[in-house]
Design a protein around this nucleic acid. Structure first.
Lengths: 245, 245
DNA sequence: CTTATTCTAGTACGCCGTACGGAAATTCCG
DNA sequence: CGGAATTTCCGTACGGCGTACTAGAATAAG
């Protein structure tokens, strides 16, 4: 056997060829699917039924392929997840050049991140684990660094700022989604568990061992939820992260 | 059969009895282990070999029990994870009352969170998914809300602030750990993959399509790492999150 | 001692990711 | 045109996971 294919299954790691420019080999049976197609199907599945529903068998079934056929396009499931992240990163809309008002640009960037994460609710959970950057994520990062260039931070601080801003957005979206789940709720698998949790909290709240907690809970249950809490907090975050040292 | 045990396996959910005050039943074979012991062993395992090594079989083997015996103490693995989180939350050191200087108290709280997460590196990854609060986590939350009481925020904002601050700490610790892993690295399973990543980034950096990225990368590789970046950023975060609306 | 109760743990089931290898499809070379 | 080489397709199978079931062991009560 000569050389394995670009995404060949047998290569332990074929480093030159993750995120390849992949010229189709001219010999051999032509592929019936494509990495992008498989990744898209995995994303659709995660959007519809959550990350847990993304199994190699389920993805393969959706495109009508045999399970093991996926391994011609993707070395393993972990890498498929990275492809998924990068693919949705490609939907990130942004101008070609910063506008000059870096605060406005940064705010817009975070809003776009938030929109992306709300469209793909598995994203906040999937992001923090991995550190690999695909080409689409790299493009976003490059743009973010360009935006931050005139903000008076050194290169390291710019990188930190973007990382932490992304972390903030992920945290906030997780929080938002959990809130919405909780209020909708009751249709899910474990409504009993949610009720148990609620009862537990209420019993805590009625006792006077946790006065501040009680107050926060009653306030949260009255107030239907702040519409633009995100924008408000975002501004504060930007102030904090980019304030001169 | 009368009633299932407090943490009885057969109850789909036995809501009153998660985090129970659990009086031992007076009849029947006495338990050979305890939930705390099992949880502690699971935590030790996660500390030593990562969250992925925490399997019911592995935990059972460590305490010398049969795998299925665990299910007398813990309804399922997910719940075991929540017990783990709450158990380590119990190590969170804090004064009984806020000192009066809420900024200092908040800073100290975040530092303690960071210490906890560094001691249990699986914690930042495990935290965001779950929203259930055990008694130890509740104590921390109550204290945090007490600290924030004089900060001039309404109850909802106080809750948000604590949530986001915790998110920030988790993000930062994840980032720290990843950095340290990367510089140590090379001993891990997939050093080839790391090299591939590094080569990929370097090739990006040498090309001039990503000038800002190139600058950030070279800066990051020179600079050995800021010792007290955490404290610096933490102050900015606190400023941002608690600035008057 | 009998009986009810509770905990222990072996066995087994249905998932998962994926290694392996033969069959099928295509191009290259003689 | 006819092998040979190469690549993809995918059925089978293996080890590991969470955990349902259940028989049996250990204890307390009557």
């Amino acid at each position: 056997m000569a050389r394995t294919s670009a995404a060949g299954r047998s290569a332990g790691v074929d480093p030159e060829a993750l995120w390849p420019t992949a010229e189709r080999p001219r010999r051999g049976r032509p592929p019936a699917y494509s990495r992008a197609e498989i990744t898209a199907e995995a994303v659709a599945l995660a959007d519809a039924e959550g990350l847990g529903a993304v199994t190699m068998r389920a993805v393969a079934a959706r495109i009508g392929a045999g399970t093991m056929s996926l391994y011609s396009y993707v070395p393993n499931k972990e890498t498929l997840l990275e492809f998924m992240i990068d693919q949705v990163s490609g939907d990130h809309r942004m101008p070609r050049e910063p506008s000059g008002d870096w605060r406005a640009d940064l705010r817009q960037l975070a809003r776009e991140q938030r929109a992306l994460m709300r469209r793909h609710p598995w994203l906040p959970a999937a992001l923090p684990a991995r550190q690999t950057l695909g080409p689409n994520a790299l493009t976003v990062l490059e743009y973010a660094l360009a935006v931050l260039a005139p903000a008076g931070l050194d290169a390291r601080a710019r990188l930190e700022t973007f990382t932490l801003l992304t972390g903030f957005v992920a945290s906030h979206v997780s929080y938002e989604l959990a809130q919405e789940q909780a209020t909708v709720a009751a249709g899910r698998t474990s409504r009993e568990l949610l009720e148990a949790q609620a009862r537990h909290l209420r019993s805590v709240a009625t006792g006077d061992s946790y006065p501040h907690l009680a107050e926060a809970l009653t306030a949260a249950s009255q107030d239907p939820g702040d519409q633009d809490a995100f924008d408000r907090l975002l501004d504060r975050m930007i102030d904090g992260l980019t304030a001169a040292v």
